[in-house]
Design a protein around this nucleic acid. Sequence first.
DNA 1: GATCACATACCGACTGGTTAGTCTGCCGTG
DNA 2: CACGGCAGACTAACCAGTCGGTATGTGATC
Lengths: 197, 197
Amino acid sequence: MAKATDGNGTPVPQRLLAAATRLFAERGYDRTSVQEIVEAAGVTKGALYHYFGSKEDLLQEVYARVLRLQQERLDAYANAEAPIEQRLRDAAADVVVTTIDNLDDASIFFRSMHHLSPEKNKQVRLERRRYHERFRALIEEGQKAGVFSTATPADLVVDYHFGSVHHLSTWYSPEGPLSRQEVADHLADLLLRALRP
Amino acid sequence: MAKATDGNGTPVPQRLLAAATRLFAERGYDRTSVQEIVEAAGVTKGALYHYFGSKEDLLQEVYARVLRLQQERLDAYANAEAPIEQRLRDAAADVVVTTIDNLDDASIFFRSMHHLSPEKNKQVRLERRRYHERFRALIEEGQKAGVFSTATPADLVVDYHFGSVHHLSTWYSPEGPLSRQEVADHLADLLLRALRP
DNA sequence: GATCACATACCGACTGGTTAGTCTGCCGTG
DNA sequence: CACGGCAGACTAACCAGTCGGTATGTGATC
């Protein structure tokens, strides 16, 4: 039998991360005890502290994963070969879809970031800033090309859009009338419509 | 000397509420101990539990206050005598300004709502829903009148706008380049531009 | 191929510290 | 003197992280 898998098949560190993600999203970081996490993952504290330095490390790992994923996808869409309008629309819609696919991570991200220690918080903010900048560059590119209105500073437009993405975890439900793709198309459309010259 | 004012002048319950608001926003609900709140307010636990039933009651009171305030203002703008475009623009900009004026309350609201017990949470959601409905009605009115595009369901448009309002507490700073009124005007403008037919 | 040395993976009782809420009682005012 | 308004010590519960211990595997040596 391979190591660190128990009777399950999934390695223990991943099981811990998955359990923590679900519990953090469900009842918040502070309300989730380490004991609950290890029970949900079917191990004990010894295992958790064998793989992770602290409870906070677990939280940071959740962030790191979602940030990596979204940055990769944004870069792919932003650097594609297509007119700027198309690239922005695709990127804007994609972030909605992937956020809906990872609603747990999203709600943890926006609700529990301030639970990280100052240094870790700084690092997360830095990565988040990189993402923001890339997105802003797309909008500015379109503004310079004259296809987007310059009435609003690009920075603000980015925050406008990401506000709505951020907000998804508080209202979107898979059981609702709209599929994730429909929501994504609508939100991207609102962005592009707001940017019409 | 009047009762419940200490050497200060402000009544104790209000001092407690103000201290709690600041601390909840600063370090989060769970990370703020009752002891810290009473110290910041210059009283002791006895005083707090004399006026409030629990720590959670304090949090709920913060919500109730900000909800009352915003509902009142929305109603005033929504029921004014003006073309629908103007009324929506005013209401959309006003919620931005008052949110910036109460950034502490806003960040508490969006980060700590899930800390409320199910019943209290339900009540807050209900009031919030009323607010949402009133705003949506404005958009639908404009859509029926033909001055707003019907490309996007009104519900989604509301969530789009409130996402950005919600998001303000994570990026807006009074020291930044934009005044609250400028931000409000820009955000309202983005909304109206997205709604152009 | 048997034995020893060492490492990895994990267990679970325990510790030191913190916290929300309680309770008894004091104190000034009407 | 009665009572609202408050003080502050106390309690019962909880929790992150530690630590000594066990089990299994792996590689070197004879």
